[in-house]
Design a protein around this nucleic acid. Structure first.
Lengths: 157, 157
DNA sequence: TGAAACATGTTACTTTATAACATATCAAAT
DNA sequence: ATTTGATATGTTATAAAGTAACATGTTTCA
């Protein structure tokens, strides 16, 4: 995978993500309601981190809901089933690029354009650290903030 | 280092941290004002993640300030000089256990008692990922949420 | 001793997130 | 078909986290 910051067939990446989502929900008996599906579409096509209230603005414009709980519930659904991730460093959310797959994602987040690339880390190092300390891991947060190659072209710092 | 969740001479760990802080500030010509020092002391002696408003309550009780900017300024000072870190996953702050040292910290955060252990990761893996993608790293966030050994004793899940 | 840099005080506000409770819809078993 | 339990939505209100902006004070050092 990796799907870094390279160009890709974006329309296909979005529609493919939605198919996976539909398929997975059907298989697991999860209800993919209009709001949930739309939020995933928005995140997936933006391909960047989006804030809850930014997403809510879209829903409101489409009459899919207007109050904060609407978007937070949809995001809870998506994140708890692995279809989206929260970027803690930005208080924002991204679509998962490989939902269903068991993974320990690492994110590269561009502070200029907010685009996010998801990559996999090998979990060995953190697991070792935790087991040395007798610590039981429930959730890992690995995020790298910086500047993506495209944004770095303009102003090489 | 590591300083996981083991027992340690806490009074000494706190006073030692403050000495380091004073020494470092003196050397760099930084102003260690009463608010800044007190916030570090609070974080250091709590030895866990504390929210900004929780810290502010302490300052208020001691007449060191009462408005949000007071605490956020102090925390900006401490974090920007490496004396404290923000735990993004909790929107909270911890004292750094080895200020001054150049490091890529990784945190283990207990969701039951909020205690935090700071450890070092070897930066190779993330650096490799970033350089493969042409991404320029500015800041790393590595946090592991879970249950510390002490809290795990009571209810082994 | 006056000017620049740094720090504080304060008001007001924005952004992010959740609690609580009423209502509606779905799914499956009788 | 109908009840029922679980799941999802609508809505109000509020909590929690963080910042902008500007006036005032305090160091430092030329």
């Amino acid at each position: 995978m990796s799907n870094g910051f390279q160009n890709h067939d974006h329309a296909r990446c979005v529609s493919g993500g939605i198919s996976e989502l539909e398929h997975y929900c059907a298989g697991e008996g999860l209800r993919l309601t209009p709001v949930r599906k739309r939020v995933f579409e928005l995140l997936s096509s933006a391909h960047r981190a989006m804030g809850a209230y930014e997403l809510l603005d879209h829903l409101r414009a489409e009459d899919l809901g207007s109050q904060p709980p609407v978007i937070y519930r949809a995001l809870d659904f998506l994140t708890s089933h692995g279809f989206a991730h929260k970027i803690e460093g930005l208080n924002a959310f991204v679509a998962c690029t490989n939902p269903g797959a068991d993974h320990d994602p690492a994110f590269m987040i561009c502070r200029k354009c907010d685009r996010v690339a998801e990559s996999n880390t090998s979990p060995g190092q953190l697991n070792q650290m935790a087991s040395d300390a007798g610590f039981e891991i429930e959730h890992k947060v690995v995020e790298v903030l910086g500047v993506c190659p495209d944004c770095n072209v303009q102003e090489p710092s």
